[in-house]
Design a protein around this nucleic acid. Structure first.
Lengths: 203, 203
DNA sequence: GTCTATAGAAGGATAGAC
DNA sequence: GTCTATCCTTCTATAGAC
């Protein structure tokens, strides 16, 4: 693959990412992507054949990027509480720099759940859980965390971090009326969310 | 307005609601809505002129329906803890019966924040907050809840209830691998979320 | 590999008959 | 009020020249 090929293909990919995240699969236009990349429509089809294939490539890359942020949680050198604080600090920081991802991502999955299935299959979810369970067995016992609480806790943690971005449009509008700045709220949230969850887990 | 007019207009409205919630504004097709209502496209335009106006009508109705669920929280005859339990029980039950609303709603707002502004203006958000503050001043003091924590707490409560539905596609796929049933999880969540938040608020 | 030009299909909207 | 037929625009995708 020549340098120029790669440059063009990458430029297309980056432009497609921006436009798809901004407008969604249905709202995005191949013309917009071409304009954004400074080329013409025909080249998009030359490199990716169809809009659908281009979208799939973009979507998969984004999914991989988001899940990668969860990996350090498996690091064994931290206590459960440290991991919770680490997660919120890092994850919210990541979303601050990519604040439209959650809404885009969740929406496209709901619209076409098949898209996520093959990615989830690759990521060893239950493996991840068993690893965590082994690392923190004592702490789980201390907190009275039973296996059937795991789905509740996992989704609660994700909710605390992701929801402000997924619901950004409405939250920001409400905050405006209350005189609250969304950016300040996010900075504050990194610590608030961690302490909130830790207190909730303690008996 | 004759009975038949109303019947047709209502049928169009209901069909439009289903199709828009299912496919989103951009993905919805006027032809789909017409087929769903058992009429032809021309009639849609006769009653609502444009796709945009039809969507606006649907969207506003849904927004009104969702916010109405918050109203009982203002009832003064309950303690703060009772209200939290009541909210999660009622709100999650409502979303169980309308499980695609959150994703649709949040996404359309993010795609066009202007849509929500006029509706938020109508709903007296700060008024709502002052009412709550007056009703629960003592409890807030007991819990050490300060004014700058309010945005964090409000969004956390909303997140606990709404996120499982907004992220349903991915959560359900993960649960599948873990052998967890989404419906059971939701039933459990009504109580779990309430106790989770209450514990988090307590020092 | 990149462009221009255009095919071909789909979708929103309207005209006009009944 | 409801239908059929059709206009017109937009969009994806491809053909063919360079």
């Amino acid at each position: 693959m020549s340098d120029q090929e790669k440059q063009t293909e990458e430029k297309i990919f980056e432009s497609a990412t921006e436009v798809f995240v901004e407008k969604g699969m249905d709202g995005a236009r191949m013309q917009d992507i071409a304009d954004h990349a400074g080329i013409n429509k025909a080249l998009l089809h030359y490199y990716y054949r169809t809009k659908d294939k281009l979208f799939d490539a973009v979507f998969e890359k984004i999914a991989e990027k988001m899940f990668r942020k969860f990996a350090p949680v498996l690091d064994a050198n931290y206590t459960l509480e440290e991991k919770i604080r680490f997660f919120f600090r890092e994850h919210i920081s990541f979303l601050q720099r990519n604040s439209r991802l959650p809404s885009f991502f969740l929406n496209e999955i709901n619209r076409n759940p098949e898209r996520i299935r093959k990615l989830i299959r690759k990521a060893d979810i239950d493996q991840l859980w068993h690893t965590l369970e082994a690392q923190h067995r004592d702490e789980f016992r201390k907190y009275n965390i039973t296996p059937e609480m795991i789905p509740q806790i996992m989704t609660s943690i994700a909710a605390m971090s992701v929801f402000p971005f997924a619901a950004r449009g409405i939250i920001e509008t409400v905050f405006e009326k209350m005189g609250v700045k969304f950016d300040d709220y996010l900075e504050q949230r990194k610590e608030f969310a961690a302490e909130f969850v830790i207190r909730a887990l303690k008996k």
